[in-house]
């Protein structure tokens, strides 16, 4: 029972109170890059969630091995290689099994490798001393938080095109200001606790 409360706390934290984008600044590059349309945003969000969950699981096991061999200093290298290979396999799999999704995501799929959120969640799992289940849950819910953030943001950005603002703010600046206001809103969740 306590384990479930624990997992619920991790979930609430990852999606709302400590949202990966609005609180921890992990995953900003794709957040800004793929959020011009809601459908691509959803696709990217789902892909990232999947990768984050899988990566959390595999890197946790790899870390066990590293600790056994006394090679903790190889953590960063090992993790990023795992993530890069994972993304490569997913790419090949999607190309054969779901070619429409593959072409829709286009060049953004390999970019998941450099998504700070994926490597970030893998490192944070170890830093927070999570066990296997907690790590996978954190990975998946972190991805869900990213999905929530990017979809909300994309829906606003689609409408930003029709708004009026100073010329100098065109493109990324106005997007960042919008994201900042959203971050302010998400701060309201910081007092959320289960008990």
């Amino acid at each position: 029972m306590e384990q479930i409360t624990n997992l619920l706390a991790i979930t609430l934290g990852a999606v709302l109170a400590n949202n990966f984008i609005f609180s921890q600044f992990l995953g900003i590059c794709p957040f800004l890059g793929v959020s011009k349309k809601v459908d691509t945003a959803v696709g990217m969000g789902v892909a990232v969630t999947f990768v984050m969950g899988l990566a959390s699981a595999i890197t946790w096991l790899v870390n066990l091995l590293l600790v056994q061999l006394g090679l903790e200093y190889m953590q960063t290298v090992a993790f990023i290689l795992v993530i890069a290979s994972l993304v490569q396999f997913i790419e090949m799999f999607l190309q054969k099994a779901m070619p429409t999704l593959y072409t829709a995501l286009g060049v953004y799929l390999p970019l998941i490798t450099t998504n700070c959120a994926v490597l970030g969640v893998a490192l944070l799992n170890i830093q927070n001393n999570y066990n296997f289940i907690e790590s996978v849950v954190y990975g998946i819910t972190g991805g869900l938080g990213f999905l929530l953030a990017i979809v909300l943001f994309a829906s606003i950005r689609e409408r930003l095109v029709f708004a009026e603002y100073p010329k100098a703010f065109e493109g990324f600046p106005i997007a960042l200001i919008t994201a900042g206001l959203m971050a302010l809103a998400f701060m309201g969740f910081s007092g959320l606790k289960i008990w």
């Binding site: 609180s23 100098a168 703010f169 065109e170 960042l176 200001i177």
Partner: peptide, 24 residues
């Protein structure tokens, strides 16, 4: 508030805007 995540987004947005204005 500026030292919180909000501030990060806002200040960077303004800096990029300033740069775009300067370059144009």
């Amino acid at each position: 508030m500026l030292t919180l995540p909000v501030g990060g987004f806002l200040v960077l947005g303004c800096l990029i805007a300033a740069m775009q204005w300067a370059l144009s």
